[in-house]
Write a protein that binds this DNA or RNA. Sequence first.
RNA 1: AGGGGCGUCGCCAAGCGGUAAGGCACUGGAUUUUGAUUCCAGCAUUCACAGGUUCGAUCCCUGUCGCCCCUGCCA
Length: 565
Amino acid sequence: MSHPTVAPGTNFIRNIIEEDLASGKHKTVVTRFPPEPNGYLHIGHAKSICLNFGLANYYQGRCHLRFDDTNPVKEEQEYIDAIKADVSWLGFDWGAHEYHASDYFEALYGYAETLVEKGLAYVCDLSPEEMRAYRGTLTTPGKESPYRKRSSKESLDLLRRMRAGEFADGSRVLRARIDMTSPNLNLRDPILYRILRATHPRTGNAWCIYPMYDFAHGQSDSLERITHSLCTLEFQDHRPLYDWLCEALEIYHPQQIEFARLNLTYTVMSKRRLLELVNEKHVSGWDDPRMPTLSGMRRRGFPPAAIRTFCERIGVGKSDSVIDMSVLEDCVREHLDQTAPRAMGVLRPLKVTITNYPEGQTEEFTAARHPKDPAMGNRTIPFSREIYIDQDDFMEEPPKQFFRLGPGREVRLRYGYVIRCDDVIKDPVSGEVIELRCSYDAATGGGALPEGRKKVKGIIHWLSVAHALPVEVRLYDRLFSVANPAGVKDRDYRELLNAEALEALAQAFVEPGLAGASSGESFQFERLGYFCVDTKDSKPDRLVFNRSVTLRDAWTKPETKGNQP
RNA sequence: AGGGGCGUCGCCAAGCGGUAAGGCACUGGAUUUUGAUUCCAGCAUUCACAGGUUCGAUCCCUGUCGCCCCUGCCA
């Protein structure tokens, strides 16, 4: 089905599957990824996708993509399309197995009549407020609805008329007859069907009653012969109901297994909050590169393979956990380091004049596209009298540990000459350093080091002013300024957004060789990080690069790296 | 005594009665024309705590403590 991914590590779910296969309970593994199309997929969904598809692949079974579309007021076709695109991009193929809970509406309704006929469900006329009052509380039992004693015959008639549209929205519901005194609230005669007049993305106005999650999910699993139904921890309390319904209906009974959802530092994972960030324009959209959505990460330049590696690396368990963002960043670097061609880019240009280099002269240096992959070939980099270096690579009063450029200091231009800073030119008004006047050592070209010459420790990137390609670079960082924005008491998470998560640099430059870079293509800007051509705003004559992630940096002090707890 | 879960290194996570894998982070050091990569080395005498069973317990039993989830006609 899908191309092989990372071999799954051992975890409690695999152990269960191994036992089921060994005991003969199952001969094959059938899983499913069941998104509700009410938002875009995020990295938390990726964990579930990789788990479900990964398990199916590993055991040579199959994994279905099933939309849990039972609430038409929140669901949209746009989300269905986006979800499919994201799952494909992540590298998984559901083949012919695309399903929708709405495909089963007729079958589900049939199950409802069956339950009524068996005396296991009834139509209840309590109002929502009354229903709440009758439900009891966490510590006190509920009360039975007066409609609970309704005959099967009457309930069946009412159910059919509910479907026929004879009653107003919210006026009646179908309930399972279980136990109003159960300590598990989900078993206090849960609602199975509600009356709701809303246009469904797929069934249009064919229905005015819709099944609840509990009466759709497990039944869909059963119809599809899912062997292992994996869901997140908050559904643990629903499992007794899942089981009760399969038993009551006497249908194929899949096994529900719960695992902990993913939490990542410096971001939020709830669809509600992500939707708010989009609607309130805190970000440019679901695919804003700062978002933890798959579409955001795609635009940010994260390779799908890196996300798969990440999902494998974090493991699967049942304890609430928060994964450090550095784990994801490491996965991204790991993949990009191997695949991204190198190039030089100057983010905040500082002009340098090589005073002893002939005016009008140009020469070209040759450099490998990748230090470890000769197959990627070479590139040529033009050099001339005036170059740009990054402002960060010069300090007027450098500390001893700083081995880049400073007054009177020497530094090596990557792939080029060793230069010495002779003069620092400042703006007479602002005092800002606006130009450096340096001299070069002609004997050091292309990395050469003449006999007896002291080795230069610092190496910096640069670009010839006359040849540099002007581009826009967008520096992205973590969305929030605190590790757990959703967990900060008395502060709305929106107040904790990292104002520096996006910095657009309109005056940046890159090697002329990048002129033809294609949309989405990734490069490593040497010494800076990985950058990709933005898929939305970049134009052939005005490239826009997004920073995917910085390089590891042993120089920048830890406290300035944004790693506070 | 509402119910359901969870508690192994800063963050994840293996482990399933025989004496604590691995990853991230961090700290040293080597290589390096990216302060990158790579490479070596270090990093839990201890598994929430207290008892018990056992020759032996992170793994079994009992109790305690801590954290998470559950009172939508959401999923």
